[in-house]
Design a protein around this nucleic acid. Structure first.
Length: 542
DNA sequence: TCTACTTACACTTTTGAATAGG
DNA sequence: ACCTATTCAAAAGTGTAAGTAG
């Protein structure tokens, strides 16, 4: 269950010698992933004692954290074709979904895992002649939002026990999205980033040395679209996404024809059949994309003023995805809806038992309990209780300049823009100054800065007064996001009250502040946070 | 006319409540 | 009364196709 087949290759990215799992780790992780996967396991470290050098321990631990991308091969397939992600007004999940295997954490230390998606470059793209071309300068970046994993904060043992899935993350092109989805511009290129923030009471809130790390997998970069442009991507999605089974090819004859025609994509779909009927000469020729150049500048590990960044192994740098120059060798023709073959009807569907399922194997973090249960049940912090995600969104320029926290009214649920988002260039693990924890009102927003390297400083200079978080009810947020789309949704269903809010737990407030003060301090961009409500009684296992 | 976007639709998986059985 | 397994309908996630807007 935990060791999915797609992970083994991903783990190559962080294979590193190190001591075996500690007893504490084994005890807390009933299904230690390392043993089954052959990973040697990085040093997990012991929980820092009261008198220990907490700072040194934290830095050591954070640097030992390794992250492997799940289903890396699938991601690579998409990457080679030029990954596209649909963005809709209501929000659309990513596929492949972002799942990682984490090792090297201190089993008893609590961590917060979150994702942001940053522009990969300054360009706007268009799909022309079956390849992506630069179509001009990028539009102003959308509000910077974070997707905090619903289990956050949780112990290292919890994160390491199983795959960490971000599959419920949704992308939208609605600038006024009230659900906390990550807002993107269509026809722009983006790079997801995973951030791991150490968050235990020993050194998270108030310590000067709390560390975080950022992990980037270049193969997860994508171009956001409102409808698929590249038929290869459409085909890959249909082949691999269980929800798209209805669009797969139908009978055995189809399959046979498909396998005769294509070794790369053995399963043929109706769409590809239509395409091939129109354009019989189909092949796939990888082309070089601009991301390659961007990522060539990346290093496997980057240490910068104590900052530490892990990147997938160098050989995993993008093969090529989004060509900047025309490549006449591509022969997937742009087939528009009005093409003459669209009404071709193919035989009935068949079950695709042989087709790999990317979702069916995901049994982690399912069925989040009601919010009240999260609040009341001690099992909330257990290693098995899933939770809905919190979305943290960026504060806009109108907030960025506000220095006072208490003076601010509760922030609206609207989106705010990155003050200035520079294209993604790198990533790091950092140790930063921490703003001493202060109690916050129920609603407060934060001007937060995502690391933008290499300009990111290892030491935060963000004054505490500039931070103000937005704290929203996790239940209402998640319900709205998962159950209650707005009236604009095609299929409107029962909606919970959007504005239902509950007082936040001081623990999560502290986490929010921590996220702000520790992690995302930069002058280039800002994030508006609206977090889930605090539900954790104890930050540490002790 | 073209491109990007929206929306309804059919099909699929997921989820959770209801029910049955031990 | 409690627990587990099964069933089933609703909810939610897909890409497609048709239409709209600029």
């Amino acid at each position: 269950m935990l060791q999915d087949k797609g992970l083994s290759e991903s783990e190559e990215a962080f294979r590193a010698p190190g001591p075996a799992l500690s007893e504490a780790s084994a005890a807390n992780a009933p299904e230690p992933p390392l043993a089954a996967t052959g990973l040697s396991g990085a040093a997990l470290g012991s929980p820092p004692g009261p008198g220990a050098d907490v700072a040194a321990a934290a830095e050591q631990t954070i640097e030992n954290i390794k992250v492997g991308l799940h289903e890396k091969e699938l991601w690579k397939k998409f990457h080679e074709a030029g990954t596209e992600m649909i963005i809709t007004k209501a929000g659309r999940r990513m596929f492949p979904s972002y799942k990682v295997k984490v090792t090297g954490m201190n089993p008893k230390t609590k961590y917060i895992l979150l994702i942001d998606i940053v522009p990969a470059d300054d360009h706007r793209y268009k799909f022309c002649d079956n390849k992506w071309m630069v179509a001009g300068k990028a539009e102003p970046a959308m509000p910077g939002r974070l997707y905090v994993h619903p289990d956050s904060p949780a112990t290292g043992a919890h994160w390491m026990r199983q795959l960490v899935s971000f599959q419920k993350l949704k992308l939208t092109n609605n600038h006024l999205d009230p659900f906390g989805h990550i807002i993107l511009n269509s026809m722009h290129k983006y790079q997801p980033r995973l951030h791991i923030v150490k968050a235990d009471e020993n050194n998270a809130f108030g310590s000067k040395n709390t560390a975080f790390c950022t992990h980037v997998f270049p193969e997860t970069s994508f171009i956001s679209v409102t409808s698929y442009q590249n038929h290869k991507i459409t085909q890959l999605k249909i082949e691999n996404n269980p929800f798209a089974k209805g669009f797969r090819g139908s009978d055995d004859s189809d399959l046979r024809v498909a396998r005769l025609q294509s070794k790369e994509y053995p399963v043929i779909s109706k769409s590809i059949m239509r395409q091939r009927l129109v354009s019989p000469q189909l092949s796939a020729t990888p082309d070089v994309g601009p991301l390659l150049g961007a990522h060539q500048a990346l290093q496997h590990y980057q240490h910068e003023n104590g900052a530490h960044t892990q990147l997938a192994e160098p050989q995993d740098l993008p093969l090529s995805t989004f060509p900047t120059q025309r490549d006449s060798s591509l022969f997937y023709h742009c087939l528009k809806r009005r093409d003459s073959a669209r009404h071709l009807d193919l035989p009935c569907k068949r079950s695709y038992l042989e087709a790999p399922s990317a979702v069916g194997e995901d049994h982690y973090f399912r069925s989040p309990p009601p919010y009240d249960q999260q609040m009341l049940s001690p099992s909330y912090c257990s290693e098995v209780t899933p939770r809905e995600a919190c979305m943290y969104s960026g504060s806009g320029p109108e907030i960025a300049g506000v220095s006072g926290v208490d003076d601010l009214p509760p922030p609206p649920l609207s989106c705010n823009m990155w003050t200035s988002v520079s294209p993604y260039t790198s990533y790091s693990v950092q140790t930063m100054e921490t703003v001493p924890y202060q109690p916050f009102p129920t609603h407060f927003t934060a001007t937060t800065m995502m690391p933008r390297l290499p300009t990111l400083s290892a030491q935060s200079s963000q004054p505490p007064g500039n931070s103000h978080f937005s704290v929203y009810n996790q239940l209402s947020q998640s319900q709205v996001r998962e159950r209650g789309p707005a009236a604009s949704f095609p299929r409107e269903r029962g909606l919970p009250p959007v504005c239902e809010r509950k007082p936040p737990s001081p623990h999560l407030n502290a986490a929010n502040e921590f996220l702000y003060s520790q992690t995302f301090l930069s002058r280039e961009s800002s994030l508006q946070y609206h977090s889930g409500m605090g539900t954790v009684e104890n930050w540490t296992d002790g």
